[in-house]
Amino acid sequence: MFHKLDGAKLPLGLRLICSAAIAALTAVLIAIVILSGPAAPGLQAEVAAQLARSGVDNPVTAVLLNFRSYDTLLEVAVLLVVAVATMPAPGRRLRPALAPTGDMVLIGLIDLVVPVVVVVGAYLLWVGAYAPGGAFQAGALLAGAGVLVSITGRFQFSFGALPARAILALGLLTFTVTAAAVALQTGVFFQYPTAAAGVLILFIEAAATISIAATLVLLYGSLVPPAREQESGP
């Protein structure tokens, strides 16, 4: 299927030159890193000093959603870029991933697993404030549940429809509006009032989780090869 996509094989001489150049580059970089000695202390002291004001106990979540929340906002925007690029046209459904199998074992298993996955996802979202976890982990888990549901063919997601678009954009909208709204009180974008920081972070993360899960399900769906119904013959 993809044979025409592949680039031509480079001529042998060029391949050798390129390989040698890449090997040399790698060797030089390794030598530089080894000779440069230990890494600089980094920012753990700064993070530890301000952690109490961040609203969460997990330093990684504090960095992601408070100290460097601008990066995370833009990261959610990256997901929206890809969601818009792969979104099916309005009114068109995402291709049914697999034909309905009617496999009772599969359906029974999914009926059992999906509710558990949703609960674990919510737990991961919650626990991100204290321990490893957070919006992306929870979103990835929920997306897994979404993919499971969609491969049975019992439900179809129509990502072109308005509610689905709203879900895809929800994370970015909530994040941006919160970042701007806190500026009304504190005067600075992204500066959450210390007392409310924990709640605001959970609020943003919950919205981001939903959008991340929806985006990942959409991405999975857009990659499934289409069923070729029109095709007749072997």
């Binding site: 993809f2 996509l5 202390p41 980094g42 920012l43 753990q44 993070v47 530890a48 330093p59 990684v60 504090a62 960095v63 992601l64 100290f67 460097r68 990066d71 995370t72 990261e75 990256v78 997901l79 870029v81 890809v82 690029a85 792969t86 957070g134 992306f136 991340i212 990942l216 991405l219 857009s222 990659l223 090869p225």
Partner: peptide, 30 residues
């Protein structure tokens, strides 16, 4: 000591960005 959380956060962000780029590439290939 406690390890520096900033690179961890950068890696988490980087993973999401890598997923997005890979997905876009694969959908173009499809």
């Amino acid at each position: 000591g406690v390890s520096d959380p900033v690179p961890h956060a950068m890696v988490l962000t980087g993973i999401v960005v890598a997923v997005a780029g890979t997905a876009l590439a694969l959908s173009l290939v499809c």
